[in-house]
Computed example of a mutant assay.
Amino acid sequence: MRTLVLGVALVAVLVTASASAGGATRPVAPACPSCEALTPIDFKIVGRSTVAKLKSDLAMGPGEMRTLLDAKTGDITGDLILPPSPGYFIIFGFTPATSTVEFAQDGKTVGKIVRGVLNTVSKVTVRLRDVKVAGVPLDVGPNCRTATPAVIELTSGPSPPPFVPPRLLKPLYGTFTMPAFTGCGAKEPLDSLLTGLISGPGNAIRVELTHIPR
């Protein structure tokens, strides 16, 4: 249920996030010994992920990705921030369920531009809260999350020359595996239930980027 990205900008992306979901602190572009050789580029990120097991879509964003581009190598590093997303799903084929899905970035989003094609990798921990099944609260507790970060790899279509942002605004696509859940259940263990309902491969993600001038 909430990458029920990234990242990903990805991130971008991705999703493409730390952005701890809804984090109050605006991420800062990564420091480097020779930052004068890097170009800061910021993006607005909007995306959608399809949770394969639930056959339901989850809206992501609008969020932001702040990156540094090495124009000589095409390498990109950055931070992704995504706000919490409300999710609506049908489980068991007929039972409505809602939740709030949060994304927390694990490390930097990294990527590379090669002749206008952007490939990125983001690692995002997915957290669930405010879960309700048929309108009845399901107390998942404060620490319900994926046991390991989801690894989101995204790729874009080619862009026209000069092959670098801000003209690189093609949508990014990818699929990812949702890891098993852990720490779920304040009064009873719910890890197995949520893992069985949500976790698994083949979750699609599409991310759109809009360049934000500095």
Rank of each mutant, 00 (worst) to 15 (best):
T67P: 08
M65N: 10
A12G: 15
V46I: 05
G22M: 00
S49D: 06
V15M: 08
A9R: 07
K53W: 02
V51K: 02
G47Q: 02
G61T: 03
V13C: 06
A31F: 06
E64P: 00
L68P: 05
V51G: 01
S34H: 11
L54M: 10
G23A: 07
V8Q: 06
K44C: 02
A19M: 07
M65C: 06
D57E: 14
L58Q: 01
V51L: 03
I41C: 01
G61S: 01
R66C: 01
P27V: 05
A24R: 15
A19I: 08
T3C: 14
P40S: 03
A17P: 07
L10I: 12
A9H: 09
V11K: 06
V28S: 13
S20H: 14
A59L: 09
G61F: 01
K53P: 05
R66K: 13
L69G: 03
L10Q: 05
L58G: 01
E36R: 15
E36N: 15
I45N: 02
A9W: 04
T25F: 03
V51T: 08
V8T: 09
E64R: 03
A52G: 08
V8R: 02
G63A: 04
A21V: 10
L68V: 14
A17M: 09
V13G: 11
K44G: 07
G23Q: 12
M60C: 11
A19S: 15
G7Q: 04
T67A: 08
G22Y: 04
D70T: 09
V15G: 10
T67G: 07
D42S: 14
P62G: 07
V46C: 03
C35H: 01
L54A: 12
G47P: 00
C32H: 04
S20N: 15
R2K: 14
K53R: 14
G22S: 11
V11F: 13
L10H: 10
S18R: 15
P27E: 07
L38C: 03
L10V: 08
T25G: 11
P27N: 10
P40W: 02
T67L: 04
